[in-house]
């Protein structure tokens, strides 16, 4: 079995944002995530790759406790963000999710205006005192998501009227607006065409300056292009976790090599 701590020790320990220790996830009787331990670095992009059903999305959803919404889902083990166990009884998942933002596979803007979509998070968290501040937060978030120039003249039109790529960037803006520290992205480009994908990838590139970005992707090229660290999941196990370059050029586990070269998956 792969020994995570020794692998992790090779990484730069100074800037660890998230630490997962022996995480187990069960869906009813199904053991979906088996003993995963991983350290995720701050201000970098970490990619989770692996064949469908390998548990990478499930593991991602553990990081902001989105799995809490699934009744039959049970998480064991320890996940620490900035040294705090997020599954501690005293942790309120709502507060956690303000700190750990999430972008989903399918663009899911609220059926409200573009402005309201972005302003919703700051509003419910009471981050602004007045309309002017809120306007500023919305503009910063939309600029951060490289969407401002396209929508600045129609902020009050429905967010659902945008194109797929714009919608996804709107969702990123919405996630960024609450000023999270970690941004989780669950296959954010799978519903987008190549041009929109390139835009979102550029965006992720710039987002890593401020956040720790964790992205699940099916596209190994994408992982290779944008991430600094890559984790390979297979059948619920974390097979290998290392610098992206190492994973793609010199993987230590034969399963990783098979997947990358297209023999399994």
């Amino acid at each position: 079995m792969y020994d995570a701590p020794t692998q992790a020790s090779k990484l730069d320990q100074t800037d660890i944002k998230i630490t997962a220790n022996n995480v187990q996830v069960y869906y009813g009787d199904t053991h979906a995530i088996k003993d995963v331990s991983v350290d995720i670095v701050d201000r970098a992009v970490t990619a989770f790759i692996g064949p469908s059903g390998c548990g990478k999305s499930t593991f991602l959803r553990c990081l902001n406790r989105m799995n809490d919404t699934i009744d039959i889902c049970r998480v064991e083990g320890q996940i620490k963000i900035d040294g705090e166990d997020i599954y501690d009884r005293r942790i309120d998942p709502v507060q956690l999710r303000a700190k750990v933002g999430m972008v989903f596979q399918k663009p899911n803007p609220f059926p409200k205006s573009i402005y309201d979509n972005v302003a919703y998070g700051p509003k419910i968290h009471g981050m602004t005192r007045n309309k002017a501040e809120l306007d500023e937060v919305v503009e910063t978030a939309l600029r951060g998501a490289a969407l401002w120039d396209e929508v600045k003249d129609r902020l009050h039109t429905p967010g659902t009227g945008l194109s797929g790529g714009q919608q996804q960037r709107l969702c990123i803006a919405r996630a960024v607006a609450t000023k999270p520290e970690v941004l989780l992205m669950d296959e954010p480009c799978s519903a987008l065409d190549p041009i929109a994908t390139a835009q979102v990838e550029d965006l992720i590139e710039s987002l890593k300056e401020q956040f720790s970005v964790v992205i699940v992707t099916h596209s190994m090229q994408q992982a290779a292009r944008i991430s600094q660290k890559t984790a390979f999941f297979h059948l619920g196990n974390l097979v290998e976790y290392d610098d992206t370059n190492t994973i793609f050029t010199n993987p230590s586990d034969p399963r990783t090599e098979s997947y990358i070269t297209g023999r399994i998956g």
């Binding site: 919404t69 303000a98 999430m102 919703y120 419910i124 996630a175």
Partner: peptide, 23 residues
Amino acid sequence: VPPSIRDAALGVGASKMQAVFHH
């Protein structure tokens, strides 16, 4: 109502009640 709307609201840190009543 599609579950993605609930996910979206929970994802930006809305409580369950906020997700239900706002969206």
